[in-house]
Design a protein around this nucleic acid. Structure first.
Length: 593
RNA sequence: GGACCGGUAGCUCAGUUGGAUAGAGCAUCAGCCUUCUAAGCUGAGGGUCAUUGGUUCGAAUCCAAUCCGGUUCACCA
């Protein structure tokens, strides 16, 4: 049980005994005591004054006395300032906590709860390589999966590939026109970049043809719809839907190049999926569901044959779910996918990691699923995240300011390498160990930098700050871990050691234990809020306290053997919790750096 | 125009079930390496928590209005 729950129980028990009135934890607040006052945790008394008809001082004193007398091994002393009852937790409570947890590498993680959560993330279009925005998505999706696992959920990671549509046709047309049969293999270009290049070529050629048409007297709007290359792409989409063999063959080939490229990137950043979905498959069951919904009266048909859902009573608009020509729109396939996922996994909850420009879309999707009577539609959750911007503003394909995922990773690792070589602390490492370390530091920094921001806020990615390895960074936390491990390499904890006396804890020792004790609550918070940044911030705070502690106090040359063993245990538990927490956000921690 | 999201130090970000004098990092300045990793530690300066009003013992946090920024309201995905 956490300290907070323990205190809460003690206080409600005390109030019951003292005043014959029953309270729950919701009736009063327990906060960590502000550093300028003496105490560890504070009961805020104001909300209790009226029901108990007490003055702050009287209640504080009565309650404090009672708590001290009843729970001597929990509370050491108290003071009352204004309406705040500051409680000093007994050192023996903290040391007891440390001694029973410091070897536990899964501290904070819960046992399986039997509930299943499907997490959909990454979900790229198959026409261009991944960029910074995809990285935020992937890091979030992967991390929230790990966090929910730690909370006891059974996780299924999925990915939907947007593999059909006009975007891929554009790349296909450009390839036919300009490639002369070139392939990723023949050019040595990574498949997703290779296909992306043709997508760009399409755009350039389209623009050139638009200008030609405008020069020949056509309006801009007309020209953009009528360039030969655009018409070719649209024709290709029609041919694709008709299943024309050579188009299908080319489509399969080019998609396979992209997937091969994605796989390399996924592997590098540790993204993995239990189940892949393809839009080219899910749009069919979606259309089927529209048909059923029409029969059930969930949807209605307009005169032109298009099918709609009326969400005006929910405060939204009418939304089309099938075109008048009978083809599927974007949401059609998402309805199909939601049901497919449920059929396959009978999930309790289904999380979609998708950018916040689709907030409306997911609101609609959830409502439609409810109306269709999909079980667990209540569990549909859009993990919405803000756009990643550069200090110069939004990334724009046209202006070439898009930060490519592979490029930024290369750069981070290169700087990690350079910085590590400058410091020269691991010159004895084997070449493979060094490569591994550069990845750990460079890719860790990238993940940490992106995940430290609350997902729902848009964030600014400053390349210079992201490769700064000082301050609030992954390197700082990794360094703290390596530092703890260095101490433990010199002398391991003596698990059999019997403490001679109950020595009192020094300020930083206690601060460290208090921070460690909060880890399970942080995991829970991160899970409830679907927010990995809670873990990142926590790990940083923990590392900060640890660094102060290690700088201030000797471990191996401690004043007494008791102190040495206590501090070794602190090093052990801190390194465990840092490793555990960083694992939840996908950042590896090195033994040395 | 409707809906939703955001506005906290020069910059990037924490902090909302309402609690004490609002916190970090970067940047700036001043100190600390014959001692377990200085990718570190200690200290200083830096704030009208967008604005105004309200709710109350108490508001960055809740409510209302206003201003600013973003997203969305497609037979695109």
């Amino acid at each position: 049980m956490s300290v907070i729950s323990t205190i809460e129980k003690a206080v409600t028990g005390a109030l019951s005994a003292l005043y014959r009135q029953e309270f729950s934890g919701k009736d009063f607040q327990i906060n960590q005591t502000k550093p300028e006052f003496e105490g560890d945790y504070t009961i805020v008394l104001f909300s209790l004054l009226k029901p108990l008809k007490q003055s702050p001082d009287a209640l504080g004193k009565t309650l404090g006395d009672h708590l001290l007398k009843t729970y001597p091994e929990l509370f050491a002393s108290y003071n009352v300032i204004k309406g705040f009852l500051n409680l000093v937790i007994a050192d023996v409570y903290w040391t007891g906590f440390l001694h029973t947890r410091y070897t536990n590498k899964s501290f904070g993680k819960k046992a399986p709860n039997g509930k299943k959560v499907v997490v959909e993330y990454a979900s790229p279009n198959t026409n261009k390589p991944l960029h910074l925005g995809h990285l935020r998505n992937i890091f979030l999706g992967w991390s929230i999966s790990e966090i929910l696992k730690a909370e006891g959920y059974d996780i299924v990671k999925t990915c939907i590939a947007n593999d059909r549509g006009i975007h891929i046709c554009k790349s296909m047309v450009a390839w036919q026109l300009f490639a002369n049969g070139a392939t990723p293999e023949s050019t040595g270009i990574k498949g997703d970049h290779f296909v992306g290049d043709y997508y760009v070529m399409f755009g350039n050629e389209h623009k050139r043809q638009v200008n030609e048409l405008i020069a020949s007297g056509m309006s801009k709007e007309e020209a953009e719809k009528n360039t030969p290359i655009m018409l070719a792409a649209q024709q290709m989409l029609v041919d694709w839907e008709a299943g024309k063999p050579d188009v299908i063959a080319l489509w399969k080939t080019m998609n396979s190049w992209v997937y091969a490229g994605f796989d390399v990137t996924y592997k590098r950043i540790g993204a993995d999926f239990d189940k892949m979905y393809y839009e080219s498959n899910t749009y069919l069951p979606g259309k089927q569901l529209v048909e059923e919904g029409l029969k059930k009266g969930v949807f209605y048909q307009k005169e032109d044959g298009s099918v709609w859902v009326d969400l005006t009573s929910e405060g939204l608009d009418e939304k089309i779910v099938r075109r008048k020509d009978g083809t599927a729109v974007y949401i059609t396939q998402d309805i199909g996918l939601a049901v497919e996922k449920y059929k396959e996994f009978t999930y309790d909850s289904s999380i979609y990691v998708v950018g916040d420009e689709q907030n409306y879309h997911f609101k609609v999707l959830k409502l439609i699923c409810e109306k269709l009577g999909l079980p667990s539609s209540e569990g549909i959750y859009h993990l919405s995240y803000g756009m990643v911007e550069l200090p110069t503003g939004r990334m724009k394909t046209r202006e070439g300011t898009v930060v490519d995922a592979d490029d930024i990773m290369d750069e981070m690792v290169a700087v990690a390498k350079q910085k590590t070589e400058e410091l020269g602390k691991v010159n004895d490492f084997a070449p493979e160990e060094l490569e591994q370390l550069y990845d750990t530091i460079g890719l860790g920094a990238l993940r940490f930098f992106i995940l430290r921001v609350d997902p729902k806020k848009r964030m600014i990615f400053n390349p210079e700050e992201s490769i700064d390895f000082h301050g609030f960074t992954a390197s700082f936390v990794q360094f703290s871990h390596a530092r703890a491990k260095a101490i433990l390499r010199n002398e391991a904890v003596n698990d059999a050691y019997t403490f001679q006396a109950n020595e009192s804890l020094l300020k930083l020792e206690k601060e460290l234990i208090i921070q460690l004790e909060q880890y399970p609550a942080i995991i829970r918070q991160a899970a409830v809020e679907h927010n990995p940044s809670a873990i990142v911030n926590y790990c940083y705070d923990l590392a900060k306290i640890f660094n102060s502690f290690v700088t201030e106090h000797r471990v191996l040359k401690a004043e007494t053997e008791d102190k040495k063993q206590l501090r070794l245990r602190l090093c052990q538990m801190t390194s465990n919790v840092i490793a555990s927490g960083m694992q939840l956000v996908g950042v590896a921690v090195p033994e040395r750096m």
